[in-house]
Amino acid sequence: MARAAADGSFQTGLRPELGRPVYRAAKRAFDIAFSGAVIALAAVPSALLCLAIRLESPGCPIYSQVRMGRIERDGTMHPFRMYKFRSMYADADERLAELLDQNEVEGAMFKMRDDPRVTPIGRFIRKHSIDEFPQFVNVFLGQMSLVGPRPPLPREIPDYAPRDFRRLTVKPGLTGPWQVSGRSDLSFSDMVELDLDYIERRGLLYDLKLIARTVRVVFTGEGAA
Results as ranks from 00 to 15, higher is better:
Tyr23Pro: 10
Tyr23Val: 09
Arg24Pro: 03
Arg24Glu: 07
Arg28Trp: 09
Arg28Phe: 05
Phe30Glu: 05
Phe30Trp: 08
Asp31Asn: 07
Ile32Cys: 04
Ala33Pro: 06
Ala33Lys: 03
Phe34Val: 14
Phe34Ile: 09
Phe34Met: 10
Gly36Lys: 09
Gly36Arg: 09
Ile39Gln: 06
Ile39Lys: 10
Ala40Pro: 13
Ala40Glu: 05
Leu41Glu: 00
Leu41Ala: 15
Ala42Pro: 03
Ala42Ser: 12
Ala42Ile: 13
Ala43Arg: 15
Ala43Asp: 06
Ala43Phe: 08
Val44Asn: 10
Ala47Phe: 13
Leu48Tyr: 12
Leu49Pro: 08
Leu49Asn: 06
Leu51Arg: 15
Glu56Gly: 06
Ser57Trp: 01
Pro58Asn: 11
Pro61Asn: 09
Pro61Cys: 03
Gln65Leu: 13
Gly69Trp: 02
Arg70Leu: 15
Arg70Glu: 14
Arg73Glu: 14
Arg73Asp: 14
Met77Lys: 11
Met77Ile: 12
Pro79Thr: 08
Pro79Arg: 00
Phe80Gly: 04
Phe80Ile: 10
Arg81Leu: 11
Arg81Cys: 05
Arg81Ala: 10
Arg81Pro: 05
Met82Asn: 04
Tyr83Ser: 09
Lys84Ala: 00
Lys84Leu: 01
Lys84Gly: 00
Phe85Val: 03
Arg86Tyr: 10
Arg86Trp: 09
Tyr89Leu: 05
Ala90Met: 03
Ala90Asp: 15
Asp91Met: 11
Asp91Trp: 06
Ala92Trp: 13
Glu94Met: 01
Arg95Gly: 10
Arg95Asp: 14
Arg95Leu: 08
Glu98Ala: 15
Glu98Gly: 14
Leu99Phe: 07
Asp101Tyr: 10
Gln102Ser: 13
Asn103Phe: 02
Asn103Pro: 05
Glu104Met: 07
Glu104Ser: 04
Val105Trp: 06
Val105Ala: 14
Glu106Phe: 00
Gly107Phe: 14
Ala108Ser: 13
Ala108Tyr: 04
Phe110His: 05
Met112Asp: 06
Arg113Thr: 12
Asp114Arg: 12
Asp114Thr: 12
Asp115His: 06
Arg117Gly: 07
Arg117Thr: 03
Val118Gln: 06
Thr119Tyr: 11
Thr119Gln: 05
Thr119Glu: 08
Pro120Tyr: 10
Pro120Ser: 10
Ile121Phe: 09
Gly122Thr: 13
Arg123Asp: 05
Arg123Phe: 10
Phe124Ile: 14
Ile125Asp: 02
Lys127Ile: 07
His128Trp: 06
Ser129Leu: 12
Ile130Tyr: 01
Asp131Trp: 08
Glu132Thr: 01
Pro134His: 06
Gln135Leu: 08
Asn138Lys: 04
Asn138Arg: 02
Leu141Glu: 15
Gln143Asn: 14
Gln143Ile: 01
Met144Ala: 11
Ser145Gly: 09
Ser145Asn: 01
Ser145Arg: 04
Leu146Gly: 01
Gly148Leu: 05
Pro149Ser: 12
Pro149Val: 08
Pro149Thr: 07
Pro151His: 05
Leu153Glu: 03
Pro154Met: 08
Ile157Lys: 02
Pro158Ala: 11
Pro158Phe: 02
Tyr160Trp: 03
Ala161Pro: 00
Pro162Gly: 11
Pro162Ile: 14
Arg163Pro: 00
Asp164Ile: 07
Phe165Leu: 15
Phe165Met: 15
Phe165Ala: 04
Arg166Cys: 12
Arg167Trp: 01
Leu168Met: 14
